[in-house]
């Protein structure tokens, strides 16, 4: 797949000396969904704002569809749609007018049929003549998406699209994103909900303190960093781990009913056979065993801890 967004050594420092971006390199392929994961203040929004032209970069080069965002800003920006994190909408304006405005602002000729299609897709058509202030929070977020889509962008930035949105709406949003991907739009979304990245992204980038720690395909990332846990449930509870089984990887559950063994799925030996043999040696009787894959959240938290260390 060709690269649609190319970010090279992007830096942004503020007058006070704070470095919001410390040389970010990122290439996005056409048609993919990339989730940028990171804690608050990691630089996610700064990165998006810089690509979109809201913030001026200190140095670095960004091209969208081969167009430099500085020298050829009209062509570059025409390709981008931005859904900001904050619900920034004019409260007294009608939904349809604000969407019309966005399309015009991006230099596209009026196309009511197109706008109707977008508003229907986002279940906003019934509300087209409502004032923004009459809408619920979830609906307002949809209006922001409709505005961003009004000029047929090829690259869509969603800055924390589901922050403060309830579970049901979040699922709706994921469906909308999946639909957009199907129609060929490249999507870059930021989130600090790991389940969100896990659910919809093709690739995941982890950003912290202005640095992109890694970008990898979601499945590979999970496999590479994924740890599994083996839970050995016992018929009789124990108070402490038998000497033969004592190791940093083995823990006793709070109720003493189970031993929890953490292992690396990618290691040459998982150590499961040995562990089970030692369990038998120690005279413990098994009731059941279960394994559990660590989630992206565990990976993420682990990585941030490593980075801070």
């Amino acid at each position: 797949m060709p690269t649609i967004l190319d970010i090279q050594d992007l830096r942004k420092s503020y007058a006070g000396g704070f470095e919001a971006l410390k040389g970010v390199d990122l290439q996005i392929e056409k048609g993919e969904i990339l989730a940028l994961l990171g804690p608050n203040g990691a630089g996610k929004t700064t990165l998006i704002s810089t690509v979109c032209g809201i913030t001026t970069a200190t140095s670095g080069k960004v091209t969208v569809g081969g167009h430099d965002i500085h020298d050829d800003f009209r062509a570059a920006r025409s390709m981008i749609g931005l859904v900001p994190q904050e619900i920034n909408l004019e409260p007294f304006e009608k939904v349809i007018n604000t969407v019309r405005f966005s399309r015009g602002l991006f230099g596209r000729p009026a196309d009511e049929a197109k706008l109707e299609k977008i508003l229907r897709q986002l279940s906003l058509w019934d509300k087209k003549d409502s004032q923004i202030r009459e809408l619920s929070g979830g609906m307002k977020r949809r209006v922001l998406i409709a505005k961003a889509l009004s000029h047929d962008p090829q690259v869509l930035f969603l800055d924390e699209p589901t922050a403060g949105v309830d579970v049901e709406l979040r699922k709706d949003m994921w469906e909308i994103v999946a639909g957009l991907k199907a129609s060929g739009v490249t999507i870059i979304l930021t989130t600090h909900y790991i389940e969100e990245a896990e659910a919809i992204a093709d690739r995941i980038g982890v950003i912290a303190r202005g640095e992109l720690l890694l970008v990898e395909e979601k499945d590979k990332l999970m496999a590479r960093l994924g740890k599994k846990q083996l839970e050995v449930q016992l018929t009789e509870p124990i108070t402490e781990i038998p000497l033969a089984l004592q190791s940093p990887d083995v823990e006793l559950s709070a109720d003493g009913q189970a031993l929890i063994y953490t292992y690396d799925t990618n290691a040459e030996r998982t150590g499961i056979t040995k562990l089970l043999a030692k369990v038998a040696e120690s005279g413990l009787v098994l009731r059941d065993v279960a394994t559990r894959q660590s989630s992206l959240e565990d990976i993420f938290v682990g990585m941030l801890k490593e980075d801070a260390a």
Partner: peptide, 10 residues
Amino acid sequence: GTVYELLSAP
């Protein structure tokens, strides 16, 4: 906050 749109438009 709607100024974001003016700044990001072509």
